[in-house]
Design a binder for these strands. Structure first.
Lengths: 245, 245
DNA sequence: CGCCACTTTGACAGCCTTCAACATGCGTGG
DNA sequence: CCACGCATGTTGAAGGCTGTCAAAGTGGCG
C-alpha cells in the first residue's frame, strides 16, 4: 500500500478531497503527471514511521540525512532563540514534505503534536530519485513556490497584523474537520495547544486566550471543546482577519 | 552577452564572489550543472528590461504572465492590507528570481528601489524551458528551498525578536558593499529608505531610527551617510541580533 | 475521584506606536 | 556657487496594545 502523499503546505482550504481550492494542487497520488511506476519506486525507498505526540522527527543542528513525508497526524516546525523564545514556522499535516532544505544540517526542529505516521527517505536516495523523476521534481518545485507564498502570508501576519487579526486569520486557515460539508457551519479542529498557537502567531498564551474569549463573547465562534471550534459567523471572521473592523 | 544569474535569495553572506557562504549556492552561470547551451537557450527567450527607481515589475492581483530575473539593482517585494499597512517580504538583488509562484495572478507586488536591470520570460516559455532543462529545474528547486529557510528566519524575527534584535539582524544580513575585503571593517549599503526597512522588519520608521541612533551612540555602528553604514563592532552586533544582551 | 497540566482571567508594566515638531540632506534653480 | 524647498530622517512626549506576573478555573486521564 502506497503511503506517499504530496500536498501544498499552509494551504488555506485543504478541506475538500485533499485538494487546495486556491491553486488546485493535489496529492501526488492523484496528480496526473506522476504515474504508478514512479510512485512504486518512491514507495520502495520509503521507511515507514510511527511517532507519539511530542516525539521528534527533526532536531535543529543535527545532520540533515533524511527527508520526510507526513501521511497522517500533525507536526510542529519551529526555530528557537538562545534564550528559549520559540517561533513555530508552520504546522504540517498529511501530505506535507519536510526536510527538503539544502545544507548539511537542519536549521529547524520538527515534532509530532499528535500521533503521526510518516515516510522517511535517505537524502541521497531522494536526490537520485528526483533526478530520475522529472515529474516529481516539477511537483516539488510547485509545492516549494506555493509554500513561499504561504510564508509571505505569515510574514504579513507577524509583521503587520494585530492579535485579533492574527487569531482570526489562523482560525480561517486551519483545515476544517468536516471534509464533506461545505457552507457556513465550519468546524475547525485544533490539535495544538494554546502555547503552540501563540508561538505560531507571535503572541503569548494569554493574548491568544483573551482573543478566543472575545470572539466567543461576540458570537463569532463557539468553543465546542478546547480543541474544537465552530465558526458561527465566517463573514465577520474574514472581515476581522483582514483588518476591516 | 548572457545576463542570467541565479542566486539564492535572502542569503546572509553574498559578499564574496557572489556565492553564499552558508550553503555554497552560486550563480547559475558558474554552476557546473548548467552548460553553455542551456544558458544560450535561456538567454534567447529573455527580454531585457531597464527600470527606474519606483517603477513596477509586478503588481499584485494582475495576471501572472511573466517570470523575472534581476541582473542589477534592488527590488522590494511586498504585500498590502486593505487599510494600507505594508509588509515587505524581501529585498531582491542581482541574481534573484521573481514570480515563480504558481497561480494565475500575482499575490504580491514588486518595485525597483533603485535603477534596475532585469530579464523577463513569458511564463509559458519558462515552463517549457525548465521541462527541457533538468539542471535548471534542480537549481531552482534548491533555490526555492533555500528561500524557505530564509523565510523561516524572517518569521522568527517578526514573531519573536525585539526592535533592537531586528535591526541588528537586518544590518548583518544585508549584503556588504565591499566584495573583496572580508574582516571586521564591514561597510553596508542600504539602497532602501527607513520606511522600507521598517516595513520589512515589522516596525515603524521612528523605531528604526531610534535603534540606529542607539547603535551609533554605543559605537556599534557608524553612519557614513544615510545609506552607508559601517559596522564597527561586528561581534557586538551579532550578539545583539541573537538576543544575547 | 483526584491530580496536574492547560486554560482563563485580572492587574500592572513595558515596548513600541502614535502624534508632533524639528533637523538634515539633496536636488533644483537662481 | 549658494539658497531655497521638500522629502526624508531624527527626536521628544504621551498613549495603547500586548507582555508579564499572579491566581483561579477547567478538563482530561489515570
Amino acid at each position: 500500500m502506497l503511503e506517499l502523499k504530496v500536498l501544498p503546505t499552509g494551504c488555506a482550504n485543504r478541506r475538500r478531497s485533499n485538494a487546495c481550492d486556491t491553486c488546485g494542487a493535489r496529492p501526488l497520488s492523484v496528480c496526473a503527471s506522476i504515474d504508478d511506476a514512479d510512485l512504486s519506486r518512491l514507495d520502495a525507498l520509503a521507511e515507514h514511521l510511527d511517532l507519539q505526540s511530542g516525539e521528534t522527527l527533526i532536531q535543529a543542528d543535527e545532520a540533515a540525512s533524511h527527508v520526510f513525508n507526513i501521511t497522517s497526524g500533525s507536526v510542529r516546525v519551529y526555530r528557537l532563540l538562545s534564550d528559549g523564545r520559540r517561533q513555530i514556522t508552520g504546522f504540517l499535516f498529511a501530505g506535507d514534505f519536510l526536510g527538503l532544505a539544502t545544507g548539511d544540517t537542519y536549521v529547524f526542529s520538527a515534532e509530532a503534536i499528535e500521533p503521526v505516521t510518516a515516510c522517511r527517505f535517505r537524502k541521497s536516495d531522494y536526490r537520485t530519485l528526483i533526478r530520475e523523476t522529472p515529474a516529481l521534481e516539477t511537483a516539488l518545485l510547485d509545492r516549494a513556490n506555493h509554500e513561499l507564498v504561504a510564508a509571505q502570508n505569515q510574514m504579513l501576519l507577524l509583521g503587520r497584523k494585530t492579535a485579533l487579526e492574527r487569531v482570526s486569520t489562523f482560525l480561517l486557515e486551519m483545515p476544517t474537520q468536516d471534509p464533506a460539508r461545505p457552507g457556513p457551519q465550519e468546524r475547525v479542529h485544533l490539535p495544538m495547544t494554546r502555547a503552540e498557537i501563540a508561538d505560531y502567531l507571535g503572541l503569548t498564551i494569554e493574548t491568544v486566550s483573551r482573543v478566543f474569549t472575545r470572539l466567543k463573547t461576540q458570537g463569532v465562534i463557539r468553543l465546542i471543546s478546547l480543541s474544537e471550534v465552530r465558526i458561527e459567523q465566517p463573514d465577520v471572521l474574514r472581515a476581522l482577519a483582514d483588518g476591516e473592523a
